[in-house]
Nucleic acid binder design. Structure first.
Lengths: 179, 179
DNA sequence: GCACTCGGTTCAACCAACGAACCCGGAGCT
DNA sequence: AGCTCCGGGTTCGTTGGTTGAACCGAGTGC
């Protein structure tokens, strides 16, 4: 349950989605998971999110079957998108495209997504998430993302400088772990 | 700004979308707007949302250019989706489809969306929001929605009985005002 | 045995959501 | 005019989630 318990009388699909995704930070955590972030500390450094909140959101997402928690070293766990979690990609992508169209220009941070596994050669996705070359709706795992302004430095943005932000300045295959 | 002010260092599209849409209730308000709900009182009755919160969310959405506030009678205003607001449809739709796939079966409340203005005759939209008949991604205004279980009454759900819920049991063109 | 890191939990202060009560302008009646 | 009702809010005390700093504990490295 997100904040209150009153979504339960909203017997519709968006309300059920919000039961899991509607809490603060949750969608940003998932975006990072799609970018290949998997560790507690990396999420924390990239998002500037309070430890307690991050722990709570990750537990909720694991509970909901969106993320899977698994050990990568004795005593160390990582969080990975499940199949259900990967299915969220189109929703996240269309949301991102919407805000891209509204505030173009300043703010930067734009990203492109290319169908890397495309039999027809691949191209940047359309607004609807379709690959214009092959006409399909590619899954997140077959996409590559790149920043539109890899070394913009006009001082307007403080330029984050954690490991995740630096890695994301270079083209990167979605979902696969960052370096 | 939704809850805190820290989204501002997240220079990416999802974060900017969440600045507007990320607050509790906002997406449910917008869903109702797509269903044709326009009046403060109708939103309140359908959503069981506190008056103060609804007033705040509507003001935020008007500020963001997603809704337009306009008088329909002396002293009475209604809230209507702007062009930018209508563009949100694919994002809302894909989110809804995602939760539909996860929890099928119990809970009901499923809805179908048909391309009513389709030159090829129209059909229920695919998961990606495409019309399978004509292959396009139709705008919200050319869709018709209908409930999958118009008169389910097994007692498991308390069955909402406000004017909006009743109207939504019948097929209805999106965005156009409810009766 | 000591320091360091990762991945948390705990705790007090703060701030947003909730819901009941109050408020205001316009329309309709008398 | 005065009274009432209705739609569309605002005010306000209480509840409950968010925040950030401090603390904790297991695992390595030295």
């Amino acid at each position: 349950m997100p904040l209150g318990r009153d979504y339960d009388r909203q017997d519709c699909a968006p309300a059920r989605a919000l039961e899991v995704l509607g809490e603060r930070w949750t969608l940003l955590v998932l975006r990072d998971c799609f970018f290949g972030v998997r560790r507690f500390g990396d999420l924390r450094a990239h998002l500037d999110i309070p430890r307690a909140v991050l722990a709570d959101r990750l537990a909720t997402l694991v509970d909901a079957g969106v993320l899977e928690r698994r050990p990568y070293a004795p005593g160390r766990d990582e969080y990975v998108l499940t199949a259900d979690g990967l299915d969220l990609w189109p929703a996240l992508f269309t949301l991102a495209r919407w805000s891209d169209r509204l505030r173009v220009g300043p703010g930067g941070g734009g990203r492109r997504f290319r169908h890397a596994d495309c039999p027809a050669g691949g191209a940047d996705l359309t607004t609807g998430g379709l690959c214009p070359a092959c006409g399909t709706l590619p899954p997140a795992t077959s996409l590559e993302t790149r920043s539109l302004d890899p070394d913009e430095d006009d001082g307007s943005r403080p330029e984050r400088d954690d490991a995740v932000s630096r890695a994301l300045r270079h083209p990167h295959r979605l979902v696969t772990p960052l370096p």
